[in-house]
Design a protein around this nucleic acid. Structure first.
Lengths: 213, 213
DNA sequence: GTGACAATGACCCGAATGCGTCATTTTATC
DNA sequence: GATAAAATGACGCATTCGGGTCATTGTCAC
């Protein structure tokens, strides 16, 4: 956002020569970027990998896949931001890339101006993604963060329940909460009733998967 | 993407008159959009809410907050895409909005051209978000997803473990796997050793939180 | 001030669990 | 073919747990 900052050094790993060259041309039209390398494969890039700020990385590559290579690149340069630029829009590819440490995820149909903006966003510490990808991530996010049903547990009961989840036995729970062993068992009975379960295993399972704790 | 499609109907709920008017002006400069309403509060918008495709919604509003109102709007019109447009960039606001059903999350400093693009993305079923917000979401996503450590469980042991997580007792596990009760107990001993725990509660807890199952 | 409920505490009993030791068979792996 | 690991099965024993019943205290609403 300052005037005339240091240019962002960008590298590209993409096997299709046409797309790679188009990308290079397009990106070098910006004053803010410098293309420091463009390679057809991970292996080729590794032979003499240039220092850079942002790496545009394809997934479908001959030899080593882009996703597998993320950790390798990150080990080489932890500060480098890796933005996936790929045609693959399935959940599997998206999540694996993100979990592997990708800092952005663009689909190839993204218009040039957006790719340019994305590179800048990534360099500034953001995580650019195309709206479709964002939707996939959010959906997955929501599906694992469940509409929590209400079991009307009292505060004390929730406290006991989270001790259960920690793996404490009744004696330990009693000691940490400064109440008697028998009282803990009574609370547990009530918890089981409210959760409609009949063992601590089931209670723990339900507590975690339904985010009650 | 087709030529001259039906215009996207956009409504705005934003209390600051200046920002609201600026937004309206800016958005109406696009041929593809029609502003069908601009309101200073949720209550005001509810009095005569126009049918629309995309709603730009602030969070910090006098009266009812934008986040709380998301379900209300969604009940009114499920197809409407709700894009938050707010100054709040804390995790709490972001996640609550998303979990409440927001279809996009932009910060107010987003440049006008991007807001315009975001409205179009939302109308097309994407989830536009500013790169910063995406970063927050991804971080949270990663923090709840795993770094899975390897415990070298055998297939059979994993099978037993997931039965544990379902809340079955040893007798039930034995019956479903067609092995003897004692064998189940033996597997459990090995599982406990490998997971470094000493109760089924702890095993279940570890299995779920570390995504072993 | 009476009923409802949460929190505390106690006892009993049968079943489930954790832990130890031992043994046989199957399946890889070298 | 030997060795190691996994899968199977068994028994004993002390402990924990689940479920039942009962009682006291405090708080809150009506």
């Amino acid at each position: 956002m300052t005037t005339n900052p240091a240019p962002i050094r960008v590298a590209i790993v993409e096997d299709h020569a046409d797309f790679r060259d188009g990308l290079r041309l397009m990106l070098s039209s910006s004053q803010r970027l410098t293309i420091v390398g463009a390679f057809p494969s991970v292996e080729a890039s590794m032979r003499d990998f240039p220092e850079c700020d942002v790496l545009l990385l394809d997934i479908n590559l001959p030899g080593r896949s882009g996703i597998e290579s993320i950790p390798v690149y990150k080990r080489q340069s932890a500060a480098m931001q890796i933005v996936m630029l790929t045609g693959l829009d399935d959940d599997e590819s998206i999540f694996n890339a993100i979990l592997a440490g990708a800092d952005g995820y663009l689909l190839k149909k993204t218009p040039p101006a957006r790719v340019l903006a994305a590179v800048e966003d990534a360099a500034e510490g953001g995580t650019p993604m195309t709206p479709y990808v964002a939707r996939r991530v959010i959906e997955h996010f929501k599906s694992t963060s469940p509409a929590k049903t209400e079991y009307q547990l009292s505060d004390r009961e929730r406290e006991i329940l989270s001790a259960l989840v920690k793996g404490l036995d009744n004696r330990q729970i009693a000691d940490t909460l400064f109440i008697s062993y028998e009282t803990v068992r009574n609370h547990l009975k009530h918890i089981y009733e409210k959760l409609h379960v009949n063992s601590r295993t089931q209670a723990v399972s339900k507590a975690i998967t339904e985010r009650i704790v």
